[in-house]
Design a protein around this nucleic acid. Sequence first.
DNA 1: CGTCCTCGAGTTCC
DNA 2: CTCGAGGACG
Length: 684
Amino acid sequence: MIDKKSARERIEHLKKVINKYRYERLVLDKEGISPDAEDALKKELFDLELKFPELVTPDSPTQRVGGKPLKEFKKVRHFDSEGKEARMISLNDAFSEKDMEDWLERLENYLGRKYDKGLYCDLKMDGLAIQLDYEDGLLKQAETRGDGLWGEDVTQNIRTIEAIPLKLVGDFPKKLVVRGETVLTKKEFDRINREQNKKGEKIFANPRNVAAGSIRQLDPAVTAKRRLGFYAYGIVGSTEGYFKKYPTHRDEYEALESYGIKTNLAKGIVAASLQEVFKFHKDVLAKRDGLEFEIDGIVVSVNDNRVRETGGIIGKAPRAAIAYKFSPREATTIVEEIKVQVGRTGALTPVAVMRPVNVGGVTITHASLHNADEIERLGLKIGDTVIVSRAGDVIPQITKVLKEMRGGKEREFKMPSRCPVDGSKVVRDGVAYRCSSKICGARHRESLYHFVSRGAFNIEGLGPKIIDRFLEEGLIVDAADIFSLQKGDVAALPRFGEKSAENIVNEINERKKITLARFIYSLGILHIGEETANLLAQEISGKVSSPKDLLRAIRGFNLEKLQEIQDIGPKVAESIFGWFREKRNEKFLEKLDEAGVVILRDKMQATSDKLAGKTFVLTGTLESLSREAAKEKIRELGGTTSESVSKNTDYLVAGSEPGSKYEKAEKLGVKIIGEAELLRLIKQ
DNA sequence: CGTCCTCGAGTTCC
DNA sequence: CTCGAGGACG
């Protein structure tokens, strides 16, 4: 629990930084940090103010909407359908089901009763809010939100948008004030950016920026060239007549459609409960990428317009509506500590431990900082506020340090000069720092994990957790001991049953036979990954049927001979040469021999030259066969597979949900084929 | 010696 | 997935 004094300090910082970014974005049309990151800061501020209401000041960003209107446009005030002044306000944000429950509870407390007349749910489009004033069915004026009170008169620009009717149809009222969002479709956004690129001009960051920029163009001709869309989300009014005509929010949508103004009526729902709202939120998230325009959440408001009016305004947002946003693609949090991990190769990797934060639907607490150089590049100190995102929507990464958020208590991080696991000296090797001890406990343990991993011995059911326990209990000391494990020894451990012990021992025995390539890979020799292990195996296959044979075979190569092998240069040769000359490793191979490890003859030769000379790269998920199986098939037919796309690639095989390789292949003009076509190629 | 291709290694969360 | 660096090649 945060005390009031630190809360006050934090609030001051947050306000200063948020205001700076808002000014840059709204007045200078420039993007300092992403909207998601800004939202995260605002959310933290909002929560702190909720906890300490006495710390709320009138200048807090939570207490205002929009920014100052630009000088160039005429400033206009916002009025409703009845000519009454009606501020254009924004919505508060919710990011979780808990936030939504809190919101409804606050509303009901205010109303003094339960609310059960339905919650209208609409998509929350990511564009620019606009008010349209119609008189006698004709578009008279259009305004941006501005600061909520005073907006900008952008009528000339709005008139160029085809999606907005200049003349209403049907049974429209004499005066009608409509609010909605101008948006840019993703397709149109791509088209504009392609054009910008061709002209050598700057690329826009997102559709919302382009939509906003287009509306606030002084030259309407520019706006006209950008085909903007418009979706209305409300009619503004507050008199008895208004409530009679439109008792519910949904009625407004239906009326708007009948007047010829587009809404997302067909995509919205009236939810009877929060549960239904949550379901809608999930459904929309699943469909998000398929929509033609960007959305960043859903808008939930009470369907009963009288209640909506009664709810009034809290701060500068309506009490009876809220934006339930999707979990952001990036967020801000605080680095509380930097841990140092020691890997299989002895490399020391700094890892940031952060205050938990939700990014893309999962809670992030750790992010690798890779190496000391990366920390320096970021300028990161312990205690800093940072922006985290997920590379490829998966791997957490710190993208930016918000140095303006520093309070003076941040600490510099220094790479330890002694290994945190065994205290050996740390030496620098390129950008990496390594523990100098080859028998460092961490290295040993990581080597064991590697030994049983999928590309190596592939012993299922024997993961890091179990290995740790075997090590702790003294059941094993090195990898070779794994093959001598007895069912009884395992079953004797606490929390291990007869059955699970049997399964593990059986699995281990089944894996005693292994291909040469896998065996070489499993040894964890520096610089020898799957590919190099394959090449090395091809070179000596046929002569090797046991670990000891391998030792003999490799000892037959000197440094020069090793380098004659394809893709092996001085560094890799040195690594192999050195490994097989170490007494410890020699003993280890002998021990594996005695434990009954047998090396199979690789049946690696191609059975056909159907695909000879062709290089394949695979991406995404295949339906009928695993990626590993597909690769094997390709190799059998004489083709080659690789992990990265280049102009030497002949085919990119794209399954569902392909990664970044897809775009790269497109850019390089590499032929992209689907699974069906691959199957046709490998059949026959 | 410089430039391009690749491979290896490290990493997170469910 | 991304970065760094090893290796091939001109």
